[in-house]
Amino acid sequence: MVDESQSRPQEQGPSDGADAEPPAPRFILYLDGVEYQSELFRLAQWTHHVLLPVYGREVTSSAPWCSRWWEHQEAVAQLHGLWLAWAELTGPYAETTGPASWHRDFLGPVLGALRDPSGPFAGCKPGSHRSKVVPPVEPLVPPPAA
């Protein structure tokens, strides 16, 4: 059984009118410092204790995974979005079709992108992490002042 307090971001439910609803969770790429680290830790708890034990398949050259996934910003962003969708679609206020929608619309596409041989873990092997090389970018000249 999953401990919902560790596995889900802040969920929203009906308000009793006395208290305002808590703000929706913010996407992790908008956070920094302690706020980012706290959210990353909570994401890691869900990833390590819910996602991977249930949906983590064997690591192969055609389906790579990095044991230091949190060092890949694309993986952090993708997994955080997956976690937020999980909370919305499987939480106590979700409709009964929520889990099926989560599997169809979110889980498959995200894991497919992350575990693609040319995805963010392409250079990683079990026990070996390789940082991604950022593609070169030409400078953009700002438009002339109006």
Rank of each mutant, 00 (worst) to 15 (best):
L82R: 03
T97W: 06
V76C: 14
Y93T: 03
A77K: 07
F121A: 09
A122N: 13
P120A: 15
T97D: 14
L114A: 07
G98A: 09
A94Q: 09
H80E: 07
R115I: 11
T97M: 11
Q78S: 08
L82S: 03
E88F: 06
A75K: 13
P109A: 08
R115H: 15
G108E: 13
W83K: 01
H80S: 10
V76G: 05
G119A: 09
L107F: 11
G119W: 02
G123W: 01
R104G: 12
A113K: 15
E88W: 03
L107G: 07
L82H: 05
D116F: 08
P117I: 07
W102V: 06
F121M: 09
V76Y: 05
L111A: 12
A100N: 09
A87K: 00
Q78F: 07
T97I: 13
F121Y: 15
F106Y: 15
T90G: 05
A94S: 14
D105P: 12
P92R: 02
W86I: 02
G81T: 09
G123H: 08
L79K: 06
R104D: 13
G81V: 00
T96D: 06
P120R: 14
T96L: 10
A122P: 11
Y93K: 05
S101C: 08
L107I: 11
A113E: 15
A87C: 05
A87H: 04
L114C: 04
R115P: 08
A122Q: 14
V110W: 10
A75V: 12
E95D: 14
A75M: 09
W86K: 01
L84P: 00
C124K: 14
R104E: 12
W86M: 01
A122Y: 01
L82D: 03
G81R: 09
G123C: 06
L84T: 06
G123V: 08
S101P: 05
A122C: 10
R115K: 12
D105I: 06
P92M: 03
